[in-house]
Simulated scan of single mutants.
Amino acid sequence: MNTFLLGAAAVAAGGFVGGVARWALVRLNGNYRHPGTWAANVVGSAVLGFSLALPGILPLLVGTGFAGALSTWSTLARELGEHLKARHWAQAARSALSTAAVTVVAAYFGMVYGQRAFG
């Protein structure tokens, strides 16, 4: 199989599983989206960091496919816009800052554990 097709298949397979995982996370709290969106972005960032140490085609499957579909930055942007439109300034700031801070830390720890596991 040609390398491009193998890479595309890996991204598609990971994307499918990541999309289903995001759907499940968002639905855990009923239809209240915000905690699910936050969790999906944090876990997606940790998985992306971890995937950097994986060998072969696995970074495409796990990082680009799974973590890319699991994380949902566009939904975060929409949710922040809803807060701002409703003039919930503190909620918008808290959501934006906590997501930014925690996802950077999660990606860092993902990289650290990925390096420990796969050196």
Rank of each mutant, 00 (worst) to 15 (best):
R87I: 10
T72H: 02
A67F: 02
H34N: 12
K85S: 14
T37N: 06
H34I: 13
Y32S: 15
R116T: 10
T99E: 06
W23I: 05
A69W: 03
G68T: 06
I57Q: 08
W89A: 13
S98W: 09
R22H: 05
V62F: 03
V43L: 13
A10K: 03
L70V: 03
V102F: 09
A92V: 02
R78P: 06
R33L: 07
W38R: 02
Y108G: 02
T3G: 12
F66S: 02
A106G: 04
R116H: 14
G119W: 08
A53E: 01
T99A: 09
G7A: 12
R27E: 11
N29Y: 11
L80W: 10
V62K: 03
G36M: 05
L80D: 08
G14K: 00
A86T: 07
V17D: 01
S95L: 14
T37F: 00
G18I: 00
A24E: 12
M1R: 09
F4Q: 14
L70C: 05
G68Q: 04
A53V: 05
G110Y: 08
A10Y: 04
V105C: 13
P35H: 10
L52Q: 11
G114S: 11
A21I: 02
A96V: 05
A53H: 03
S95A: 14
G7P: 01
T3H: 13
V42S: 09
G68W: 01
A117S: 15
V43K: 01
G63D: 02
H34Q: 14
Q115D: 15
A86S: 13
K85A: 15
A90Y: 12
A8V: 04
V20L: 12
A101C: 13
L70N: 00
G68F: 04
W23A: 10
L60N: 06
A90H: 13
H88R: 15
A106C: 06
A96G: 10
Q115A: 15
G65L: 04
G119D: 13
S51F: 00
T75E: 07
L5M: 10
V105M: 12
V47C: 05
W23Y: 15
Q91P: 09
A12S: 09
H83F: 14
A24D: 08
L25Q: 00
L84V: 08
A90V: 15
F109C: 07
L28A: 13
A10Q: 03
G56L: 08
L76G: 03
G49Q: 03
L60T: 02
Y32I: 15
G7N: 14
T103K: 06
A53L: 04
K85F: 13
A24W: 14
G44Q: 02
V104N: 07
A106E: 01
R87M: 10
G110C: 11
T103A: 08
V102Q: 07
R27Q: 11
G36V: 05
A100S: 12
G14N: 01
F109H: 07
G63K: 00
M111N: 12
S45N: 01
L76R: 03
M1Q: 08
R94Y: 13
T64I: 13
V102A: 10
A107L: 10
H34A: 15
M111G: 09
V43F: 08
Y113N: 10
G65H: 04
A69V: 04
V104G: 06
G14P: 01
F118N: 12
W38E: 00
V42E: 07
T64M: 07
A93L: 12
L54W: 05
V43Y: 01
A39C: 11
A93P: 01
H83K: 06
V26N: 06
